[in-house]
Computed example of a mutant assay.
Amino acid sequence: MHMNSAPHLLAEDRPEYERILDDALRHAHERPDLAAVGERLNAVQLRTMALDATALITATAATEYEHYVKARKELRGPAEGAGQDSGHGSGTDDPNQSGAGIGAVVTVLAPVLAGTAAFIFLLSGYLLRLLNPPPSFASTMVAAGWFFAAVMAAAILAAAVGLLITALRNGSTSQPAEDAENELPEDVARAREAWRHALLERGILPFLRDALADPDAGPASRTPHRSANRIPKIGYSRPDFTSPDDGPASGPRPTFTSPDFTSPDFGGPEHELD
Rank of each mutant, 00 (worst) to 15 (best):
M1C: 10
M1I: 06
M1P: 08
M1D: 04
H2R: 10
N4P: 02
H8E: 14
E18M: 04
R26T: 09
L34E: 05
L34R: 05
R40C: 02
A43F: 02
R47W: 03
A53W: 06
T54F: 00
T58F: 01
T58L: 00
A62M: 09
Y65K: 04
V69S: 08
R76V: 01
R76H: 14
G77Q: 14
H88A: 11
S90T: 10
T92A: 11
D93K: 04
I102C: 07
A104G: 03
A104P: 00
A104W: 05
V105F: 12
L109Q: 09
P111R: 08
V112I: 13
A114E: 02
A118I: 03
S124D: 11
L128Y: 10
G145T: 05
A160E: 03
I165D: 04
T173K: 15
P176I: 03
A180E: 13
E186K: 15
A189R: 15
A198K: 12
I204P: 08
D214Y: 03
D216N: 12
R226I: 05
A228G: 11
K233A: 14
K233T: 11
G235V: 02
G235A: 14
S237C: 02
P239S: 12
D240E: 14
D240V: 14
D240L: 13
P254Y: 00
T255W: 06
T255H: 07
S258D: 10
S258A: 12
D260A: 10
F266T: 10
E272G: 04
E272I: 02
